[in-house]
């Protein structure tokens, strides 16, 4: 028996799948629209994979949970994290902070927490749901840069999950290098890990 049937979805996860977020979440309208589109992508991919209905709910919930603290002040996000986890840059703090808060609220689903924590940085620990969240966040049809390329990558999903993630990851790392910005060790480890999958 797989953990799909018979496992219990936390109420926060179940509510998030239909766009209902906890009262400690406050997001701007633009962010909300992004969440709607990412949730729709994840639902589409989960259904195309033939996932169990509970699994589709989990995939969809990530659309709303992944950015639930995106619009919060980085200073307050940093304070939420344990002292040894506060070295993330401002623009990626919202992932780990949201995962930490969800855990405190009783969500024990490690795959969801991990996907939320690392949806921007990436991590070798991501399973398929984490990879799909990473891809869906980037491939949001509402994003304006390189629309044709993003559309091509969306076309290849969900069958080509790993190659699509590798393409996205490569583009992001190249951008950081071009802009002379630091590449986090999680992201580099993610790149090396994804290359071994390509083998």
């Amino acid at each position: 028996m797989s953990s799909g049937a018979g496992s219990t979805l936390h109420p926060i996860v179940r509510d998030a799948a239909v766009g209902i977020l906890p009262d400690w979440v406050s997001v701007r309208r633009k962010r909300r629209s992004h969440m709607d589109r990412v949730a729709a992508l994840l639902q589409e991919w989960a259904e195309a994979r033939g996932e169990h209905p509970d699994e589709v709910v989990r995939w969809r919930s990530l659309g709303f949970l992944h950015d639930c603290l995106r619009d919060e002040d980085p200073r307050s996000l940093r304070k939420m994290l344990p002292k040894d986890r506060r070295d993330f840059p401002d623009n990626v703090l919202h992932g780990p902070a949201a995962a930490y808060r969800l855990r405190k609220e009783g969500v024990k689903d490690a795959e969801i927490l991990n996907a939320v924590a690392y949806h921007t940085l990436g991590s070798p620990s991501l399973g398929d749901l984490g990879l799909a969240t990473y891809a869906a966040d980037f491939l949001d049809p509402g994003r304006t840069l390189r629309k044709k390329w993003r559309a091509q990558l969306r076309e290849a999903m969900p069958q080509e999950l790993e190659p699509v993630v590798l393409d996205i990851l490569g583009a992001r790392i190249q951008y950081l290098i071009k802009d002379k910005r630091r590449v986090r060790p999680e992201t580099l480890a993610f790149w090396n890990h994804m290359l071994t999958l390509k083998r």
């Binding site: 953990s3 496992s7 979805l9 009783g106 024990k108 689903d109 490690a110 795959e111």
Partner: peptide, 8 residues
């Protein structure tokens, strides 16, 4: 067993 973990 712990169904809240969503793991096998």
């Amino acid at each position: 067993p712990d169904s809240n973990l969503y793991l096998d």
